[in-house]
Amino acid sequence: MGGVKKPDPARRSERSRQAILQAARELVSEVGYAKVSVEAIAARAGVGKQTIYRWWRSKGAVIFDSFLALSEGDQGVVLPDTGDIEADLKTVMRATVAEFADPGFQAPIRALNLEIVGDPELAAQYREKLAGPVDEAKKTRLRSAQQAGQIAADADLDLALELLYAPLYQRWLLRSGPLTPQYADALVDLALKALRP
């Protein structure tokens, strides 16, 4: 056999895909969602525009996947379970607040939110691929707190998640206050007051 390696199209196309996703994230962070175009993403990634349209139907879809790729390394989402629901929720909420306060992470989230508002199909995709699985993991942890008697047995867990996350989301969306570890702890304290047996 000769020593010449045949090009591996699968590997090359995965390299192109990662370059496109990275380019989309960088551009959104640099210029904001409205100014990003498929042409700009293609130019930055070093691919043709048709390569992007082969995999994604719109600029919003590319940006969504570029955001999803940030957490692709996670082997499913599992919340800490030390047996102490207050400590575990504070750990998770502090990490969430830090993430939302991180400029590199929040720029694509803001872009994604803008796009979701006007695109019901993308909103459904977001719920199914990203928000849904994360919410299920959170509810699994809350259920184990219910079984341990730390949360009321009849608590509505979907509503419990809204109690915890909606104030954080609103503060972030409207830029109406600082996102600090103290704020994360205060949200947990208040939510647990409502949820305890």
Rank of each mutant, 00 (worst) to 15 (best):
G46F: 09
V47F: 09
G48R: 13
K49Y: 09
K49V: 14
Q50N: 12
Q50F: 11
Q50T: 15
T51S: 14
I52G: 02
I52H: 05
Y53R: 11
Y53C: 08
Y53E: 05
R54H: 14
R54C: 00
W55L: 10
W55P: 06
R57G: 07
R57A: 13
S58F: 08
S58R: 06
K59N: 07
K59L: 06
G60M: 02
G60R: 03
A61T: 11
V62C: 10
I63D: 05
I63N: 04
I63Q: 03
F64W: 02
D65K: 06
D65C: 04
D65Y: 11
S66W: 08
S66R: 01
S66I: 05
L68C: 07
A69V: 03
A69Q: 08
A69G: 07
A69L: 05
L70T: 09
L70Q: 14
L70V: 07
L70Y: 12
S71P: 00
S71I: 11
S71K: 10
E72K: 15
E72P: 04
G73C: 03
G73V: 07
D74G: 00
D74L: 15
Q75L: 14
Q75R: 15
Q75K: 15
G76S: 10
G76C: 11
G76W: 13
G76R: 11
V77P: 03
V77T: 15
V77E: 12
L79Q: 03
L79F: 09
P80T: 13
P80M: 14
P80C: 11
P80W: 13
D81A: 06
D81G: 01
D81C: 02
D81W: 13
T82C: 07
T82F: 10
T82D: 12
T82W: 12
G83Q: 12
G83R: 13
G83D: 09
D84T: 13
D84M: 11
I85T: 10
I85M: 09
E86W: 11
A87M: 05
D88G: 05
D88E: 06
D88A: 05
L89T: 04
L89I: 05
V92T: 06
V92L: 10
V92A: 10
M93W: 04
R94E: 06
R94K: 15
R94Q: 11
A95F: 06
A95L: 13
T96I: 00
T96F: 02
T96H: 09
V97G: 04
A98S: 14
F100Q: 02
A101T: 00
A101S: 11
A101K: 03
D102V: 01
D102F: 00
D102Y: 01
P103Q: 01
G104Q: 08
G104F: 02
G104M: 02
F105K: 10
F105Q: 04
F105V: 06
F105A: 07
Q106N: 07
Q106W: 00
A107D: 06
P108A: 01
P108L: 02
P108Q: 01
I109N: 05
A111K: 02
A111N: 03
L112W: 02
L112V: 11
L112D: 03
L112N: 05
L112M: 08
N113E: 12
N113V: 03
L114I: 14
